[in-house]
């Protein structure tokens, strides 16, 4: 039964039971299916409004609570201890930028090479299909496991928590995302453009450099920026790799603060000053992440 028996019988639609009249074609709002339509539509609007509320609430809180502490001190001072007043989140911003930069330096080159192999050089090989599948699985990988892995692989090896370990943990998360988006972007380059280059006698490298990469570049950059934005907000992988620090970072082999861990730590403190800083740090973090997102939209627009 694909459809409800439609009220083809005009009995309901025609008020006077007179025979021979054509069925009414006007709206009848009290017919059950029209009523259902209305209820479902109203319900859907309500659910959609409900879905949009949290974002508005989060943004409101960030602006009101976080905005209150948005001043120069916030960016230049170190976090306050215990009962201290004032202070800032300067070292956390620095730490977030440094760990994300390390992660990008490690993951972007590897991911781009992998994507070129998957999309262009040997798209159908066994290595490619296995790597593609594993990359997809890795994107659904709980981010805290990247922390657990890097703890075992880097922190234990180096003997200490460090910004470097934090960067490696974030790189583990970035690698599959960038690989897959870059591969997708290269796939979108029309085959006839690549054919043109091949037909002129380009080597594989020349095809990739002169046709595939330049054409796919906006989408690849978009993918990279989105991946950067995503890991900038990550905290679970940093918990026991970069750890936290109350001081400025001087060496990437030292533990470092980060915005996300600062928010986590301060959120459970019983001091208003720290809570306010947690909101301010959240505002800064969200501005960084959303800033990257908006940037990616501008770059990702098809340019002809």
């Amino acid at each position: 039964m694909a459809f409800e028996a439609s009220p083809a019988t005009p009995a309901m639609a025609i008020p006077s039971g007179s025979d021979g009249k054509p069925p009414s074609l006007g709206y009848n709002s009290f017919e059950p299916r029209a009523l259902w339509n209305l209820i479902l539509t109203l319900g859907l609007w309500a659910v959609a409004a409900l879905g949009a509320t949290p974002l508005l609430s989060v943004l409101y809180m960030l602006i009101v609570k976080g905005g209150a502490r948005l001043n120069g001190e916030l960016f230049t001072e170190l976090p306050p201890a215990g009962f201290e007043m004032g202070g800032g989140i300067g070292n956390a911003i620095q730490g977030t930028l440094v760990t994300v930069a390390i992660a990008s330096l490690i993951s972007i080159p590897i991911a781009l090479f992998a994507a070129i192999y998957l999309a262009e050089l040997r798209p159908l090989s066994r290595i490619s299909s296995v790597a593609r599948f594993l990359a997809k699985v890795l994107t659904g990988f709980p981010s805290i496991l990247a922390g657990v892995f890097v703890y075992a692989a880097v922190v234990l090896l180096m003997g200490s928590y460090s910004a470097l370990a934090g960067g490696v943990a974030l790189a583990v998360l970035m690698l599959p995302t960038i690989t897959l988006t870059a591969e997708g972007a290269m796939h979108m380059v029309p085959q006839r453009m690549k054919d043109a280059a091949i037909g002129m006698g380009c080597t594989n490298t020349q095809v990739v450099w002169s046709v595939t990469l330049p054409t796919a570049l906006p989408s690849i950059v978009t993918g990279i920026i989105l991946a950067v934005a995503r890991v900038a907000g990550e905290s679970a992988p940093l918990l026991f790799t970069a750890l936290f620090s109350n001081y400025w970072l001087r060496n990437i082999t030292e533990p470092t603060a980060s915005l996300s861990i600062l928010i986590y730590n301060f959120s459970s403190m019983p001091f208003d000053n720290q809570i306010e800083l947690a909101w301010a740090a959240s505002l800064v973090l969200v501005m960084i992440v959303l800033g990257f997102n908006i940037l990616s939209r501008f770059i990702g627009r098809p340019q002809v």
């Binding site: 006839r192 043109a196 037909g199 006698g201 330049p214 054409t215």
Partner: peptide, 20 residues
């Protein structure tokens, strides 16, 4: 094959200029 294609050029069914 790369060398072969440099000597034997090709024009395709669909026009395929590079985006340059």
């Amino acid at each position: 094959p790369v060398v072969v294609r440099r000597h034997i050029g090709m024009v395709f069914q669909q026009p395929n200029p590079f985006s340059m």
